[in-house]
Design a protein around this nucleic acid. Structure first.
Length: 106
DNA sequence: GGCGTGACCCCAT
DNA sequence: TATGGGGCCACGC
């Protein structure tokens, strides 16, 4: 049941599983999807027509950097801060602590 | 049906 | 420790 845009839907589904105050990385999502296409995940978010429905702002880079955001990195940082994630100089503090791991593989 | 792009990641220097 | 280069997959035209 691999729909053409099913890949994006899976990414969104995983994002929905992220609890408030937690974040994840593109690579982790890609691995959860059983693929190494971390870039594809970013591309999926970049197009994000479901930005309103999906909390894409909870997705950051594996380095702890916030990375990019359709509405701007500053906006993303503000959102994360509101979520309870400490952000400093465009990077997440205690990244390992707020990092959400997908135990369920798709 | 094929090419280029991208919100990245990993390795080497 | 920081910076640079290459490679990965999926999507859009």
């Amino acid at each position: 049941m691999n729909s053409k845009t099913d890949f994006n839907q899976r990414c969104y589904a995983l994002l929905k599983l992220i609890p408030k105050g937690k974040v994840t990385t593109y690579g982790e999502i890609a691995r959860a999807l059983n693929t190494t296409a971390s870039r594809a995940v970013g591309s999926a978010m970049a197009k994000n027509r479901d930005l309103i429905v999906i909390p894409c702002h909870r997705v950051i880079r594996s380095d702890g950097s916030i990375g990019q955001y359709a509405l701007g990195t500053d906006k993303k940082a503000s959102l994360l801060c509101e979520e309870g994630v400490e952000v400093e100089n465009g990077k997440v503090k205690h990244f390992s602590k707020v990092f959400h791991v997908f135990t369920k593989n798709i």
